[in-house]
Simulated scan of single mutants.
Amino acid sequence: MEPPLAPPPPSLAVLLLLALALFGSAGLTRSLSITSADQSMFEKAQGEKVTLPCTFVLSEEDEGPLDIEWVLIPADNQKKEQIIIMYAVDRIYNHYYAAMTGRMQFTSSDPRSGDGSLDILNLKSADTGTYQCKVKKAPGVQSQKIQLTVLVKPARTKCSVEGSQEIGKDVTLKCASQEGSPLLSYDWRRVSGTQELPATSTLNRNTGELLLKNASQEYSGVYSCVASNRVGADECSIELNVTPPINTAGIIAGAIVGTLLGLSLLAFLVFCCCKKHREKKYEKEVHHDIREDVPPPKSRSSTARSYIGSNRSSLGSMSPSNMEGYTKTPYSQVPSEDFERTSGQNQTFPSSKYGIAHKIGDITVV
C-alpha cells in the first residue's frame, strides 16, 4: 500500500495575497472606525425621544483635532445638507437648525470619550428623514447614515352610520381617524349583545367600513371601532338602532293636513286684520263727518243774538226808505248777561234819529 501524497506547497501568488490581507486588516484596526453601524433604521412615535447612535474608536495614528458633525440629508437631491449639531475644538455648536432648537443634544457630555450619539426630544412628524454622523480626526474619517421615521398615533377617530337604519336595508358603519401615520388598520367589534359581528357583515380593514347587509332588529346594539398603526391606537363607538319601515303614506297625509290647517289659519288671520283695518277706517270717517255737522256750542253771545233778533223783528215793519240811516249795533256793544239779569231797573237807550222805540220786558229798545 502506497503512502498518501503530501499536499503541494502554496504558490507564491497565494502567499502574497495572504500577506496583503493581513496588512490591510492591521491597518484598519489602527484607523478611526465607527462601531455603531448595526442599526440604521428607527421608528418612533410623535412626542417620544430617540437616540441616534454614533460611537467610534480612535487609533494612535489619528492625531488631528476631533470633529463630530450631524447633518440632515434632504429627500430632494437638489437641496443641500443641513447641519444640525457639531462638536469642534472642544466646543458644541447647536444653533444651525432652528427647527430643532432646544430639542437636540449630544448623548454624552464629552463626545471625546468616543460617543457622538444624538438625542432628539419631543419628536415631530417633520423630523422624519435621513441623518448622517461624520467623525473626523486626521487622517481618519468615517460616517454613518441612519433613517428616522416619526409616526403619528391615530387620534380623533370618528364613527358614523351611512344608509337607512330600517329592517331589510343595507347599513354601513364607517370609521376614520383625523390623525395618524399610514398605514392605518381598522377593526370593528360589537360591544353589546352577542359581541359578535353579524354573519352578513363585511369588514374592510383599510378603509374602516363595516357593511351590514339585509339588516334586522337583532343587529341593533353598540359597535366599537379601533384604529391602529405601529405606534398606537385610538377608539370610537356608535349605536345602531334598526327599526321597522316608516309609514310613508301616513307621513305624507299628515304633512298635507298640517299644511292645509296652516293655510287656513293664515287666511283667517289675514281676514281678521283686513276687517279690523276697515272698521278703524270707517270710525275715522264717521267721526270726521260728525265734527263737521255739529253746531258750535252755545256761548254768551246767545243773549246778543236774542237782542239782535228782537231788534230786527221790530224793524220789520219799517220801509226801505226808513232803513237807509239805520246802523247795526256792533257785536261788541251787545249787552252782556249781567245786563239781562238786572231786574227792577229801567234802562233807557238813546233814541235813534227815527225816534222809534220798542219795549221788551222792562227794557225799552229804540
Rank of each mutant, 00 (worst) to 15 (best):
C236G: 11
N206L: 12
I238C: 05
S228R: 13
L263W: 05
N214A: 12
G250R: 07
L240H: 07
T243R: 10
N206P: 00
A255T: 10
C236A: 15
V222I: 12
E196V: 15
A249F: 03
L211S: 14
P244I: 02
L203P: 07
T194Q: 10
L184V: 04
L203Y: 02
N241T: 12
A227G: 10
L203Q: 15
P244C: 04
I256H: 01
T243K: 11
I252Y: 03
E235I: 14
Q195E: 15
R190F: 06
G250T: 06
N247W: 00
A255Q: 04
N206M: 07
S220W: 09
E209M: 13
T200G: 03
G250K: 08
P198V: 02
S224T: 13
G254Q: 09
T243S: 11
S237W: 09
N229L: 08
G232E: 04
L240D: 08
G208W: 01
Y186C: 02
I256G: 00
L240M: 08
G254Y: 07
V222A: 06
D234R: 00
R190T: 08
S264E: 07
E218G: 11
L210D: 08
T194A: 13
T248E: 10
R230F: 10
L240E: 11
I251W: 03
N247P: 12
L261Q: 01
I238V: 14
A253P: 00
L212I: 15
N247I: 04
S216Q: 14
A255V: 01
S224W: 04
Q195H: 09
S264L: 15
V226M: 09
R205S: 15
N206Q: 14
A249L: 06
N206K: 14
